[in-house]
Nucleic acid binder design. Structure first.
Lengths: 209, 209, 209, 209
DNA sequence: CATGAATGAGAATTCATTCAT
DNA sequence: TATGAATGAATTCTCATTCAT
């Protein structure tokens, strides 16, 4: 048992090695420059060995997609401490924006690239990672409504809120925002400001009611 | 003269042939499967001939990017007839959504793919097509504010509105909306509904109307 | 007749245009970067037109080979004024060296490249230009012997003298002399010095006779 | 250990296979007709395989250049047995001529083609092989002077002697000697005779004069 | 477990040349 | 005379992947 365990552990370590190397290449050289050979070179194993741990290149990228969600979840871990659900929603949005801007490659795999979703539908699988993130969003939105911070259909509002922040992040990381925000370092504050504006528009203004 | 004209016309026709073939391949087989060879096969010319009409592959894709903007502009041509700027903004958003859903590949080149923007920054050029679309959006938002339909910073609001609809479209065409909208045919109405919700949130309260 | 003449003249002019452009490309970009298309671009005619004046690329290069000999002949034109045949031989050698160093591309076509000679033997032609240059060398060497400046077989001596200067020039222009002559500007004087040494070795020392 | 050795050996064998095939093509079809594909066809491997053994085409040619020098060195191995340095110099010259005439393609890579030197200067490397051959020549010339067979500057004399034999060989293998030596089989003796003449001119003949 | 060897398929691009006009 | 249009035949090189060991 101990032996098996250790073997299992070692296997996971090499998998991690491969994934880290892939991500490194992905970040530094762009998606299309990640080749099995270069991954193998980086970890100082043979290309063939990579195939012992991953069926093919797609599987590597799908694993990175999963890791991306893990990272985002970690970022959101302390959200639970925020009692006010609207504040929590707000912070969730800010985290989302920050995550996307800081990890454009993960973000790409998680929410932009077509391949991961194609892979899933080939296998007849659900987008487990994405769906659970969506669920968390929905739960928070629902809570906001229950507590009177927001109104409307939680489904529609969740979809809209997500689309909004995704729009911000994806336009920014695909360089479509230069006219709006010419300075790179202003992107994060500008997107947060936009989020702010959005939330202030949808929240129920208690004073006037 | 007539001869020159005809020749010019023929030349344009072959260019169009190439662009159409590229788009067809792009739609049917995905960006990375569009090769000069396959384009040439499709139009029944030699690969070399393609190079008579386009400097390289990038130029083809950039032309498609431009054509995308033209198509979108055509779609928006009759917007001018809408007097009320908020209604016009609303319709503009609906058109944007429809265009994106109906032409995901053009949309991809226009607003998602990295390559076109990289090409531009290499050449030190501006994103003319995109910038002018943004300007039109801004103008409408500004008018909305002048006429009391919206308030706030036109810059911020325009950025936000665009991000919102881009988010809707890009999540939808990259298959991330299945949990929210499982039926394909419901996507368009759902996105429009979301847009509707958004606009009703930001528009200035009806008391003043 | 006047018309025919003018036409002939014009034809020659365009031929010259083509040859000049070819040489320019050859000098500036190297042999393998001279393409019909680039020649045509340079003279602002179509590639097809080039074929009206030259059968193929080889013919262009062969013409340049001929022009090279013309240029060298021009350089040697005032040799006739040198009465002393040994001095004349010496100056001939110096001119040869200078010509080669100053016109490495012509020199290449005249004495290094295989293609021109292959072309000739295909056509069953003689190397007229080269042969006549050789004849002039031989005549001078013979005169040197008749006048007591040199001794031995004029055939052998001519061959040897030519080989010697060709060796100097061709090693220099093909960058094999860097160990011997590291500074570019010292090449010409060094080769002349070598020629000097050579001639002083083969000339009959009158004092001792 | 035995296994590793054998593998290493096999690897070297395939390298040799590739080099031999390249040389064969080079000899039979000329420099510009040696392509990776044709090399691969010849050895009945795929083109890709060639790239497993050589980084690119240049590396193949540079290896051949080196092999050329090795072959020439082998030819000169027993020169050390010749005590008299002038005789040794003479034999060295004869070997050089023979090597060049018998291996015109190697000779081409070693002393005529521009590419190898360009590659070297790109890499900032020295022409190690050439320089050491030059050193051996210089040493012999110097010894001749020390022993009273030759006089003058060893540098100048070495340069001149080398240029002389290079001139002979390179004119011959590039077919410029046909006027002087019309019969192919007479080339070798004629060049040796020329070398003979040259050496008898420069040697200090004390007794017989 | 790990790999060296090998490959098939295919990429973008370039060139000399020809033909109908 | 001049050319625009077209092409066949290459070129180098890269990649994901497999198989025998």
């Amino acid at each position: 048992m101990g032996i098996l365990e250790r073997k299992e552990k070692q296997k996971l370590e090499i998998r991690k090695l491969i994934l880290d190397a892939s991500m490194k290449l992905f970040v530094e050289e762009g998606f299309s420059n990640v080749t099995i050979r270069r991954i193998a070179d980086l970890i100082e194993y043979s290309p063939t060995t990579v195939y012992l741990y991953f069926k093919d290149k797609d599987e590597i990228f799908f694993s990175l997609h999963d890791i991306g969600f893990q990272k985002m979840e970690e970022m959101n871990r302390d959200l639970v401490t925020i009692e006010n659900p609207l504040l929590r929603l707000h912070k969730m949005g800010e985290n989302y924006i920050e995550f996307g801007l800081q990890n454009p490659e993960y973000y790409n795999l998680m929410f932009i690239q077509e391949e991961p979703m194609k892979k899933l539908s080939e296998l007849g699988c659900d987008w487990v990672k994405g769906d659970s993130a969506i669920s968390r969003l929905k739960a928070t939105v629902t809570e906001c409504m229950e507590k009177g911070y927001l109104k409307g259909d939680p489904h529609l509002v969740s979809l809209s809120v997500w689309s909004f922040v995704h729009g911000l992040v994806s336009l920014a990381i695909r360089e479509r925002m230069e006219k709006f925000i010419p300075q790179k370092e202003m992107i994060l504050p500008a997107l947060k400001q936009s989020l702010n504006w959005m939330i202030s528009n949808i929240e129920i203004d208690n004073r006037s009611k």
